[in-house]
Computed example of a mutant assay.
Amino acid sequence: MDIEAIQKKYHQALAGLESNTRTVFGYERAVLIEGGNYPGIWLECGPLEGLVYGRKAPEVAIANHEVFFHHQRADGYLPCWIWGDRVGSSQIQMVVPIAKTALETATLTGNEAFLSKAYQACTAWDRWLSRNRDSRQTGLCEAFCQHDTGHDNSPRFKGLPRTCPDQNAAMCPDAGKLPYLAPDLSASVYGGRTALAEMARHLGRTSETAMWQEKAEALRQKILQHCYDPEDECFYDVDADGAFVKVRGDTLTRVLCEHVVSPATFERIYARHIKNPQAFWAPYPLPSIALNDPSFVRELPPNSWGGASQALTALRAPRWFEHYGKKEDLNELMQRWVEALLAAPEFMQQMNPWTGEFSTSAGYSPAMCVFIDFVDRLKLLDG
């Protein structure tokens, strides 16, 4: 790859991230917003993006978490998004656990006061989820609507509401066979609890450390018990009738991101699905739906989690590829993304998994984060 072109694009990414660092409703410090078509910060991704950019701007890593803590309701609910003029409450919209990125941010910045604040906020959030997203009393976290997981226009939620009624994330729509037992949302709660255990240990709360560890392991076992199909070696939603919703999508990668499965199970899943060029190992990995799944949306419309390879999925990939020892494959994935971004006229949201052509939302912060993170990890500009 052309080092001069990489250097130029890297500076463009940093300039774009600086431009997308702005104030939002009711919070005085600037945060890194999603950019492009998205005029605010989302719980699904804002804390992780802040953490990645925080290696250059630590104050942004802190702000991208504290903005959610600042707007946390008394009952523990964290807003799903915060725009320039209002705060959202119509879904939960979580993927990478905010407790986990908060712990990593505290480690990055050495900010003990932030760690204590994050522990209190994320403990209250866990309680809200337990009270309001376990209506079937399984111990798992339920999906009520499409935007709960940020899976816009995904066949996973085909025909189901985008948001909860009355802008209330505690209300399940009366539609389809909702609520779903959601493996990825449950994995996010699991990852949050492992992080809360580590926070408690660091804060000297010994009994709470053990409590979080026990709660996390109990949830991990429930995910495997209810949402894993050993015949397909895949994780699926479970509808209100107790049936698997058999869409092979990046829901699977989100479960892997929280290290729910054992190394042996991971290797089987990885060989069958992730590294399979007919499934997720496309020329430009990882598509949001397996290439060989009947529900794959071949038209690849804008903002579609129906097939396109999404920058957010790429940004999360190091969090599980490295954990499971897939460094060489991660390097290949990162190189393909860097190549595609170098060829793209703008930093955009999604790309064609066969051609690497980008579309949707120029000025998109996650794509900028992917570029700087992957260039740094590959050491393409060293020396």
Results as ranks from 00 to 15, higher is better:
177 K>D: 12
99 A>G: 09
377 R>I: 09
247 V>M: 11
130 S>L: 13
182 A>T: 14
102 A>V: 13
128 W>V: 02
188 S>T: 14
287 P>T: 00
228 Y>D: 03
62 I>S: 01
360 T>E: 04
367 A>G: 05
13 A>Q: 06
293 D>T: 00
295 S>H: 08
198 E>C: 05
232 D>C: 07
129 L>I: 13
270 Y>G: 03
4 E>N: 11
266 F>H: 15
272 R>T: 12
120 Q>M: 14
202 H>F: 04
88 G>P: 03
150 G>S: 07
85 D>A: 07
187 A>V: 05
132 N>D: 08
33 I>A: 02
219 L>D: 02
119 Y>M: 13
28 E>Q: 14
287 P>A: 00
267 E>M: 11
146 Q>G: 14
66 E>Y: 10
10 Y>M: 03
49 E>N: 10
196 L>V: 04
152 D>I: 08
253 T>A: 15
322 E>N: 11
321 F>L: 09
130 S>M: 14
155 P>R: 03
301 P>T: 01
325 G>A: 09
91 Q>C: 15
356 G>F: 13
152 D>A: 14
145 C>K: 01
249 G>L: 07
306 G>V: 04
219 L>M: 15
346 E>V: 04
10 Y>P: 10
144 F>D: 00
201 R>L: 14
337 W>S: 01
147 H>W: 09
117 K>C: 10
135 S>T: 15
271 A>Y: 13
366 P>G: 06
374 F>N: 02
207 S>Q: 14
289 I>N: 00
151 H>I: 00
301 P>A: 09
279 A>N: 06
109 T>F: 08
200 A>R: 06
153 N>H: 09
165 P>T: 09
149 T>W: 02
120 Q>D: 09
337 W>L: 07
343 A>C: 10
72 Q>T: 08
96 V>R: 11
272 R>A: 14
358 F>S: 10
67 V>T: 12
328 E>F: 10
223 I>E: 13
220 R>L: 13
182 A>S: 15
14 L>V: 10
190 Y>K: 03
261 V>P: 06
296 F>N: 01
233 E>G: 01
219 L>T: 07
144 F>T: 01
13 A>M: 09
194 T>H: 07
304 S>H: 11
138 T>I: 10
66 E>A: 09
179 P>E: 04
97 P>C: 11
78 L>C: 11
248 R>Q: 11
252 L>P: 00
346 E>C: 05
205 R>C: 02
245 V>I: 15
323 H>M: 09
351 M>A: 04
